Simulated scan of single mutants.
Amino acid sequence: NAVADPQAAFGQGSGVENSATLGYEAEAGQDNFVYVRMRNRGGSAANNVEATVFWAPPSTLLTPDQWNPLGSTTLPSVPTGDQLTVSDAIQWQAADIPAPGHYCFVALIGATGDPAPAPADFLDWDNFRSFIRNNNNVTWRNFNVVNNTPPAGAQPPGFVAMPFLMAGAPDKARRMRLEIASRLPAKAEAMLEMPLEWAELLKVAIRPVKGADRERRGVVAIKPAGRTAFADVVFPAKARIPMRLIVKIPEDMRKQEFEIYARQMYGDEEVGRVTWRLAPPRKPQ
């Protein structure tokens, strides 16, 4: 929902400056309202600050060919002093909201004297790597909060499923690898589901998933605590490989919160990640 005073609700002194769960869900079937927050760490006010927001599927490599325009807003000025400053709402029309699921927001900001990059700039692989590591004008929130209690009819029973994409670079095939980092409790179980063809490429032992709709998919065990790294392989250009992390939290631990993330590596350089926080069900408002 829209708020009457975005600065008071989400800005400096609001108490939610560093919240990891603030506004992580969009509601299908109605207009939604997106706010952009920023800090000016320069020596003078930033004028005519334009913020443009995109949405994309959760992907360990979030290249701009996956971005979908959501909207933009302009702030007349963002004061200096490193104070968290909030934009007016960008109204996300109900008809433009994708089907229920998890998505990532990408935001580009630019001001007079410090323009934002254009999405096309990221299609160059070296530019992409530079922007995600060194640029103050772009950010993305590839962060999901999911219920750690399995839904009715969960498959496999007792597990929570977290789908995401692995993606290839936009320009040409490149050698990369997938890593899963888990911070789950003792007796938790974790698996990664992937297409059988990809498992063959990774040379991992995999258990096929039963069922006609998944006959070409299988699962491999993941360390519940620690890092599981797969082999470096060639990712085809613009590849979109559907994956699912499947996690089972012991019943006596479902009142706690835990994290797990998947990241894509290019050599020793992380080029993208998706993070999930498994949390207890939210209490009704």
Rank of each mutant, 00 (worst) to 15 (best):
Q7E: 14
S14Q: 15
G15T: 03
V16A: 12
E17N: 03
S19W: 05
G29N: 15
D31Q: 00
V36D: 12
R41S: 11
R41T: 10
W55Y: 12
A56F: 13
N68R: 11
P69K: 10
P76I: 00
S77P: 04
S77E: 14
T80S: 13
G81C: 14
V86N: 01
S87E: 03
A95N: 12
L108Q: 06
G110C: 01
D114A: 11
W125E: 15
R129V: 14
S130W: 08
T139G: 07
W140D: 12
W140M: 08
N142E: 13
G153W: 00
G168H: 11
A169R: 06
D171A: 06
R177Y: 07
A181K: 09
R183D: 12
L184E: 08
W198G: 03
A199P: 10
E200V: 14
I206K: 02
R207G: 00
A231T: 13
D232A: 04
D232W: 09
R240Q: 14
M243S: 02
M243C: 03
L245H: 08
V247W: 10
K248H: 09
D252I: 00
D252K: 10
R254I: 01
E259T: 14
E259W: 01
I260H: 05
D268E: 04
G272C: 05
G272M: 12
V274F: 12
